[in-house]
Design a protein around this nucleic acid. Structure first.
Lengths: 205, 205
DNA sequence: TGTACATCAGTGAACGCGCGTTCACTGATGTAC
DNA sequence: TGTACATCAGTGAACGCGCGTTCACTGATGTAC
């Protein structure tokens, strides 16, 4: 890591990385621009060469998060093909994996309070990620008898909610709320039971 | 509302109420002690007659939340009796109802970052609420063949996670993340499918 | 019922602090000739 | 290759602000006699 005296080299990304670490450590509201600057080895004022301000920096972190998230989801979906079922469960697993591997991004995206409609770019990235899950749900719903098939967007929402709940309650080191089971087991079994409820996997599997 | 000149009457509760409103409006970290004092019509210093400080005030709000929550859960459970199934689904519904009706408490409890083990009182209140759901799950699990019965604490965790996820993603006015369906429908159908997966309700019900 | 006094719940001024943001500046880099 | 100069990324001092917390105080309440 060559430390150039005056010019940083890639301050923009360094600031985003610092922000992510701080968001992870201090929570979405505990994060401060000044501290991020300090951690990147730079004066707070320097931040304004690259971002409009505090909010803009968080939004950028969230944007990168949505992009990584979308990539992971897409990759999981592709890898699960051609089976609609395995593609679907893979995306569910990818959700949890993302939350575990990129906690800073996750918080910036879902807990920082920044609106996903802040910029068209951000909205697009969020939509892309969401669309993968919905696509997987649509594929899968083809296997349910049409007359009793719930809308695909509904069960994509169910799985999303279950995943999110597992992450929030049991995957993060929620202070004093120890998980009774490993988060990934919890999600895996939960999705399994749910899919059985849809008649998509056999009762004794 | 008789405004006594100097003495407030019930400042302690007024401060908690103010805190709850502010937490709801500004988020868990955006809440400030000074503002809560101001809203209660009192100097910031007055807060220290009733609480040890900022954290203590939030913890008290959370405590009251857990107590209300526990009551609601217990009431729902009792009312659903003697059917294990209806008692169980009623507690699920109560979760969502609580989040909708007491958003400030909900945030103080689940998003403020205060540890549930901060005081024995708080831990007890949290445990009580949780135990109701677990009891309902245990009752229900009696109806599943013993050999393929998942631990009751596991499916209580599933339902809790699903409920929490629905609340976080679709019930709160998540900026720019409009729900495709009403939150209560989402939870109701989700739990329905899940219970079908456990073989607890018939496939064509 | 009236007075003296202890108790207690509030005041208001002050503190040190870190925040986000602005500004004129300066040092480093890169390009033109 | 060397010099002049424009561009740009950083500095550092300053700002006004609201925060949580402390302190000596004072006004209101309630009790004893």
């Amino acid at each position: 890591m060559p430390k150039r005296g005056y010019h940083h080299g890639n301050l923009r990304q360094a600031l985003i990385d610092a922000a992510l670490e701080l968001i992870e450590a201090r929570g979405p509201m505990g994060f401060t621009l000044s501290e991020a600057a300090k951690q990147a080895g730079v004066t707070p004022a320097a931040v304004y060469r690259h971002f409009e301000g505090r909010e803009d920096l968080i939004a950028e972190a969230a944007l990168q998060g949505y992009e990584i998230f979308g990539d992971l989801m897409q990759y999981a979906y592709d890898k699960g093909q051609p089976s609609a079922l395995s593609a679907f469960t893979a995306t569910g697993r990818a959700y949890l994996a993302f939350a575990g591997k990129y906690p800073g991004h996750y918080i910036a995206m879902f807990e920082s309070g920044i609106s996903v409609n802040r910029t068209p770019e951000l909205a697009a990235a969020a939509t892309r990620a969401n669309d993968v899950l919905e696509k997987a749900a649509t594929d899968l719903s083809q296997h349910i008898p049409a007359d009793k098939r719930p809308p695909a967007s509904m069960f994509s929402a169910h799985i999303w909610a279950l995943s999110h709940g597992v992450v929030e309650l049991f995957a993060r080191n929620s202070p004093g709320r120890a998980s009774p089971f490993p988060a990934d087991d919890l999600l895996e079994t939960g999705i399994g039971i749910y899919l059985r409820g849809l008649g998509l996997i056999s009762p004794d599997d």
